[in-house]
């Protein structure tokens, strides 16, 4: 953690209480995040377990009364980048900076105007949206998960991801356009009119 870390000296009982009352309530959200990042149930389990054990090991640097969920999500995201992304048999083929540079270019907004209708979404009763989310580049799906599924504010997301708020905002915008593009493809393949 970059910001000033105040280390506490919690007793075992306090540690147990923080763990049970502040960390465990987020376990389902954390599991979902781990699963969406790794896309493998077994890896998600390992990542979740590593994250919780790490959280416990570093519990003295957690300040009671601060946002435990954001603190945990940050550990999970860092563990994923440091441990799992490297291990992955198929590392991301695209350099993320290139992807972001591309999606930040002015032309793309003009190109990506997915013509998707609400009516075709109501027909997506299966795994379409889940598959569409999973198919996004990891940095794009992450912002959608943090914002739309977990309800983090932009400022919290900036801290979790170590990026400026402006980047959170623009990355979210690109991510949502890409998600719509995917959904639009599904809608077309399902035979629904998109426009």
């Amino acid at each position: 953690m970059e910001e000033e870390v105040v280390r506490n000296q919690y007793t075992d009982a306090q540690k147990q209480e923080i763990f049970d009352m502040e960390f465990m309530p987020h376990i389902n959200a954390m599991y979902n995040f781990a699963y969406r990042l790794t896309l493998e149930r077994d890896d998600a389990k390992d990542l979740l377990q590593d994250t919780y054990l790490k959280a416990y090991r570093f519990i003295d640097s957690f300040q009671q009364g601060t946002n435990a969920k954001a603190w945990l999500f940050r550990i999970l995201k860092n563990s994923f980048i440091n441990d799992y992304r490297k291990k992955s048999k198929e590392p991301s083929k695209v350099d993320y900076q290139e992807v972001e540079a591309y999606y930040n270019s002015e032309d793309v907004d003009r190109q990506i105007t997915p013509d998707l209708r609400v009516e075709s979404l109501t027909n997506m009763i299966g795994d379409e949206i889940s598959n569409a989310l999973n198919s996004l580049d990891v940095d794009f799906k992450t912002v959608i998960i943090l914002c739309d599924l977990e309800g983090f504010k932009y400022e919290e997301m900036a801290k979790i991801l170590d990026i400026p708020i402006g980047t959170v905002r623009s990355r979210l915008h690109r991510a949502r356009n890409l998600l719509k593009e995917k959904l639009s493809e599904y809608a077309k393949s399902m035979g629904y009119k998109t426009a």
């Binding site: 376990i27 389902n28 599991y31 969406r36 609400v118 949206i129 739309d148 599924l149």
Partner: peptide, 28 residues
């Protein structure tokens, strides 16, 4: 459209942690 996508994401993209995993983390 934005409202509908957010609704669909919340409805379709959540997963619960398996019970045995939760127990194993607590035990460790």
């Amino acid at each position: 459209l934005e409202v509908a996508i957010r609704g669909l994401l919340k409805q379709k993209c959540s997963n619960e942690a398996p019970e045995e995993l939760i127990n194993s983390i607590k035990e460790k």
